[in-house]
Design a protein around this nucleic acid. Sequence first.
DNA 1: CAAGATATCTTGCATGACAAGCTATACGAC
DNA 2: GTCGTATAGCTTGTCATGCAAGATATCTTG
Lengths: 128, 128
Amino acid sequence: MSDDPERSDSRKSSIARELRRGSLELIVLHVLAAGEAYGYEIVTKLTRETDGALEVTDGTLYPLLYRLERAAFVVVRWDTPARGVPRKYYQLTDAGRMELDTLTADWFTFAAAMARLLGKAGSDDSHD
Amino acid sequence: MSDDPERSDSRKSSIARELRRGSLELIVLHVLAAGEAYGYEIVTKLTRETDGALEVTDGTLYPLLYRLERAAFVVVRWDTPARGVPRKYYQLTDAGRMELDTLTADWFTFAAAMARLLGKAGSDDSHD
DNA sequence: CAAGATATCTTGCATGACAAGCTATACGAC
DNA sequence: GTCGTATAGCTTGTCATGCAAGATATCTTG
């Protein structure tokens, strides 16, 4: 497709990259909460559904999925059809759902603190 | 005992730590936008004003301030009074103010994307 | 003097995002 | 056949940066 290395922002402004830290786990767990998915699917899904704002590369995702598996937040199911490339489906466990809740709460706490500091109440967009 | 080893995590919940990534620069620039400040002051100010939610340690702050200085986002002024420990005051430059604007916009973009993702009800899973 | 608060700076480690590279299967075009 | 592309997964190495821990120095108080 548009493999356009000339894009002025081909390299995320570096802030976006760092912002993703600590939120990616939450993001992926949230995607999985909607139903099982395989890695490649999560990558394309996130890129598309968030307009690239929360994009994740496979080089980032697979290690993350492995960490989630090791932490027992997800379980893995291989789907090896007669034809087609085998897919590794990830499914949330109860522990994963609890982790998702915790992380979601943490996120809202953090986002609220940021909103308070930056002086906006989010809902009201009165820009001064 | 005020010493509470059972506190699920002796260190910052690791997620909180990572969430600070990429937002700390914004936070500090924002504090400096309110007027010049010295390092130790920023540490105590942030801890107090955000109820610890956006706390930063001096071991984190000083290297950050140095990066900001090297990037010309701040200028430094030493205050060496006849009595009292010398203080290094940091002041925002025009470039720093522009960076603050950029980072603030980036933050709101990111926060909005997160809100959109997390706000989507799980019940509605009719994807394309 | 000793101890503590104030104030700055440095070293070393751990984490994790990401680019770049790799493997393998399926399928259409040649 | 085999080449190119899409799908699908995995691995290695690099870089940035948060933070603990420690060093240094000054001032104040007992």
